[in-house]
Measured scan of single mutants.
Amino acid sequence: GPREVTMKKGDILTLLNSTNKDWWKVEVNDRQGFVPAAYVKKLDSGTGKELVLALYDYQ
């Protein structure tokens, strides 16, 4: 199956793709996968990378 990404509340993840309104593709610890968009919030990183903050645990 697809590689699952797990996250804990407060984690910072790299946002790869947010074109789908329900599932965003993120990368964390060299793993890529989809997380519910409602579970993360975009951060203003000030760099080229888009980052998101995990609002809830997800696994």
Rank of each mutant, 00 (worst) to 15 (best):
T14H: 09
G10I: 02
L43A: 03
D22F: 14
W24R: 00
D57V: 02
A54L: 06
T47R: 10
N29I: 05
K21F: 06
L51M: 11
W24F: 06
G46R: 09
N29H: 10
L51V: 09
Y39K: 07
V5D: 02
L13W: 02
K8Y: 07
P2C: 15
K42L: 13
L13C: 07
Q32R: 09
F34K: 03
S45E: 09
E27S: 09
G33R: 05
P2K: 12
V5G: 03
S45D: 13
A54T: 03
L16G: 01
L53G: 02
L55G: 01
S18P: 05
P2Q: 14
L51K: 09
E4C: 15
V26I: 09
I12K: 05
N20T: 05
Y56L: 10
V35N: 01
V28S: 12
G33H: 08
L55R: 03
G48D: 13
N17A: 09
N29Q: 09
A38D: 13
V40R: 00
Q32D: 06
L55A: 02
D22K: 12
T47L: 11
K42W: 09
G46I: 13
V28Y: 13
L13E: 00
Y56C: 14
K8A: 06
E50C: 13
K41L: 10
W24K: 01
A54D: 00
V35M: 02
N17R: 05
P2Y: 14
I12C: 05
E27P: 00
A54C: 08
K8E: 05
D44K: 12
W23L: 04
V52E: 00
V28E: 05
Y39D: 04
K21E: 09
E50M: 13
K41E: 14
M7H: 01
K42R: 11
Y58A: 02
G46L: 12
G1K: 12
R3Q: 14
K8V: 07
A54M: 07
E4N: 14
F34P: 02
D57H: 04
L13P: 00
L16F: 03
M7A: 01
A37Y: 02
L55I: 08
R3C: 15
V26F: 01
G33N: 04
W23E: 02
K41A: 09
R3M: 15
F34N: 03
K42P: 08
K49N: 10
E27R: 07
S45G: 12
D30K: 09
A37H: 03
S18R: 07
G48R: 06
L53C: 07
D11P: 00
L16W: 02
D44S: 11
A37P: 07
R3L: 13
G1W: 14
D30H: 10
Y39R: 06
Y39C: 15
E50F: 10
D44R: 10
Y56Q: 13
